[in-house]
């Protein structure tokens, strides 16, 4: 989708793509940490909540929405 100027990619597309990649990386790191738990003394507070997994998923959904909605069309 174009912005106001013809042929210009939308800022929302850039944001969507970046947040999508971040969502993948963060939820991936979270799942890896869940499968391979770090030693208790280096865990962050509230580690059992696995915030990185579900927050990464939130990023993934937001990123996917913006990327698809504002995907550049020829």
């Amino acid at each position: 989708m174009i912005d106001h100027q013809e042929n210009r990619l939308s800022i929302w597309f850039f944001i969507g793509a970046m947040v999508l990649v971040y969502g993948l990386l963060i939820s991936g790191a979270g799942v890896y940490g869940w499968m391979n738990p770090p030693a208790p003394e280096v865990r962050v507070q509230l580690w059992p909540l696995h915030a990185d997994v579900w927050w990464g998923m939130v990023l993934l959904v937001i990123g996917l929405f913006y990327t698809l909605k504002f995907w550049p069309k020829s």
Partner: peptide, 12 residues
Amino acid sequence: MSQYLGPGLLGL
């Protein structure tokens, strides 16, 4: 941040 954010989230 250091208290709650683990790898990945801390980078963000």
